[in-house]
Amino acid sequence: MPADRTTPNDTTVPDAPDDTAATDPGGPAADGAELIRFDKVTKRFGAHTVLDALDMTVHSGKHVTLIGPSGSGKTTILRLMMTLLKPDEGTIMFNGDYLTHEEKGGRLVPAGERHSRAVRRNIGMVFQQFNLFPNMKVLRNITEAPVHVLGLAKDAAEERARELLDLVGLTDHLDKYPGQLSGGQQQRVAIARALAMRPKVLLLDEVTSALDPELVAGVLDVLRDIARSTDITLLCVTHEMNFARDISDCVMMFDAGRVIEFGPPEQIFTAPEHERTREFLSAVL
């Protein structure tokens, strides 16, 4: 393993624009094009710096898991990706386009709502608290965006929704309201809802944290299935280390707003090089 993989954040880790191939989380043998790039992204909440000049690249089709103690900035990355937050400094690129900014008259200005919406159409997100629309039945939760954003015909959208419900094992429940489902079922509907938009990347924000322990496995199985059978890019924040080991191509360890170490799961989980990573893993495993 190259030594620079674990050098402190302020040098080239985890990724520098000039030598992408060498330090890319997706690894040197990355099969897809660069999909996500964080360039010196800083995010502060008041006096607290959550992300500190973060550089990061994710290649298309890769499954990247972010781990680290709570408050280390993992969820903030997903929320920045979803444009639910705006960075204080730095830029984020997605699919060859600026996500946080747009070019106007040759200058880079913070993105307007119209621009953000156009770019983030290819980004899907599953939330810790599911956030299903309680006033819509399961089927309409899934078809709402395809019909009103992608302009799909209602029949086509429903057809696709049924397939997705089959994928998450909830075909019997399409006529129920979210409130009539268990947490695990709701989360599986939320996954289907996100996939219905055919996103290039799916952001998974601690998707099992709000679930009762016995419901976690069902949701993770669905996600494993999706990771295996599709070429979707996954960016995943989780405390389920076994799941992270199973599905990831790359695991990134966060601490205090920086990536302190990253690499393939077998390396991070069996031979972490950084002291903080060892401490964190011994606490959670």
């Binding site: 919406r117 159409r121 939330f127 608290q129 599911f130 956030n131 009103h148 954003v149």
Partner: peptide, 16 residues
């Protein structure tokens, strides 16, 4: 209305 509902609408790119 919980903030998560707005966030879900954003995540699905629903128009305003």
């Amino acid at each position: 209305v919980p903030a998560g509902q707005w966030e879900a609408a954003t995540a699905l790119s629903l128009p305003r």
